[in-house]
């Protein structure tokens, strides 16, 4: 399978199974479009190039095919039995230390922090038991991850600090290495908390949507005021204090700002170097939801953003955009490429009461409660369903060119829209495909612009 497309004056072909990316001239690009479906005579008659040029292009395409970098066979499908046969162990937990929030963001998947339940804080005892559960179920894995999440985790920061201290003591006993992250809306950030985060958190996610009017339309305080003026100076200070690495400013775009490249560039203009602005995932009945009819505009905006990134890089104003980051030279192992985040198997979320869920997005949906940290995983049929979910089990992924860069999409989004973790959220898929195209084009530009 080969995906061919044009962007920014590049003719690009992605060989899906090998991952090879080719940049073609117009002759080769047009010949490639007919290469598998037409005879040589038919290609001569269909295209307005000289026979000599067409023959050259055909020979080059044949050479790539022989080398295994065009129309290559799927090398992963045969490995499924080996991958599926492994005993899953837990390596990461998302600790919901706070089911409460000091903002009232309209689009919050967590129901403004409450997760459709009563507002609550995780106790130190519950958090401690969750860390014990993680260590106990992590098998031989040394690197373990804990995300402090909410709601707003800074509303329960004393417990966060105690849990970090406990984990540091336990990791020595069990030969483990904890990696911590925290996600915050920034309202409660202080210099003291900033110092603590810098000393203890490997990654920090700072929630802000971009331009002031965009952010303040969605991310309001309890009294109805905007949050931008409170959080922006704090976030700039925190990002600088971390040397502009190991953090992300993370925003959400909605139907209200389909010109979201303006928000990305605003964050870049404010000095941030690690930026993610992502599409809202919301029921179609919500006024701010992104609908099928919005996709053309979203696609144009992603392409416009890619061009802006190129021009800024020329002027040494570059920044990283989370969804355009693609590693064509390395990449993860096969099992990760085909199954993604490991939700429900190696990554679990823990609610304030100790309940276990496949990931943070499933918390609050009792159908997806798989057990608790005290008695362990009880709903094995559900975890098996997650374990066996990958790009080879999803019909929608089989012919998709982006499958090895997307790993089948978010399982929670799939369930929320299609009531099955095996049926990806189609609007999300379409945006993902456009982002992969943009990311590959950026790589092509990086490699060939100077030639």
């Amino acid at each position: 399978m080969v995906h061919r497309y044009k962007m920014n004056n590049y003719n690009i072909a992605l060989d899906i199974n090998s991952g090879a990316v080719h940049v073609l001239d117009d002759v080769a690009f047009d010949v490639l479009g007919l290469y598998k479906s037409s005879t040589r005579e038919e290609i001569f008659n269909s295209l307005a190039y000289s026979q000599n040029e067409i023959v050259e292009a055909i020979n080059e395409l044949k050479g790539l095919e022989s080398a295994g970098t065009l129309f290559s066979e799927d090398a992963y499908a045969g490995l499924l039995d080996e991958i599926n046969g492994r005993e899953p162990v837990v390596k990461a937990i998302c600790l919901h230390v706070t089911h409460d929030c000091n903002l009232t963001c309209k689009y919050c998947f967590a129901d403004e922090g409450g997760y459709k339940g009563s507002r609550s804080l995780m106790s130190f005892e519950t958090g401690k038991a969750a860390l014990d559960f993680l260590i106990r179920n992590s098998g031989g894995r040394r690197n373990l991850e804990v995300d402090f999440f909410g709601g707003e985790p800074l509303m329960n920061f004393d417990v966060v600090k105690k849990l970090v201290e406990y984990a540091r003591a336990e990791e020595k006993k069990h030969n483990k290495n904890f990696r911590f992250t925290v996600t915050t809306n920034g309202l409660l950030l202080t210099e003291e908390i900033q110092s603590y985060i810098n000393e203890n958190m490997h990654n920090v996610v700072l929630s802000i949507d971009g331009r002031k009017e965009i952010n303040d339309n969605m991310r309001k305080t309890k009294t109805g005021g905007g949050s931008y003026d409170i959080i922006m100076p704090k976030f700039k200070k925190l990002a600088d204090s971390r040397g502009q690495t190991n953090y992300y400013v993370r925003g959400t775009f909605t139907k209200g700002n389909l010109d979201f490249s303006g928000d990305v560039l605003h964050l870049a203009d404010e000095g941030f170097k690690q930026i993610s602005v992502e599409p809202v995932v919301a029921d179609a009945s919500e006024a701010y939801a992104i609908q099928v009819q919005d996709l053309d505009m979203v696609f144009k905006e992603y392409e416009a953003l890619a061009l802006k990134i190129i021009s800024r890089k020329k002027n040494n104003q570059d920044f990283n955009f989370f969804h355009f980051m693609l590693d064509l030279e390395g990449g993860p192992c096969v099992s990760k490429r085909i199954a993604g985040c490991g939700a429900g198997t190696e990554y679990l979320a823990v609610a304030p009461n100790g309940g276990l869920y496949p990931c943070h997005q499933f918390v609050g949906n009792e159908e997806f409660k798989i057990g608790d940290i005290y008695s362990g995983i009880k709903n094995h049929s559900l975890t098996e369903e997650f374990e066996k979910c990958n790009v080879y089990t999803k019909e929608a992924c089989k012919e998709c060119f982006a499958k090895f860069y997307c790993s089948g999409g978010c399982l929670s989004n799939a369930y929320n829209f299609n009531k099955s973790i095996q049926k990806p959220y189609e609007i999300g898929c379409q945006m993902q495909r456009k982002r992969v195209e943009c990311a590959i084009m950026l790589k092509a530009h990086e490699a060939f612009a100077s030639l």
Binding site: G19, H22, E60, K91, G331, G342, I440
Partner: peptide, 23 residues
């Protein structure tokens, strides 16, 4: 080659980390 340039030299079919893929 005259008509085609290949971008990457390490490929999928020639194949403890952080939780995520495109890592």
């Amino acid at each position: 080659m005259k008509h085609i340039k290949t971008l990457n030299t390490k490929l999928l079919n020639n194949t403890e980390c952080q939780t995520s893929v495109a890592q």
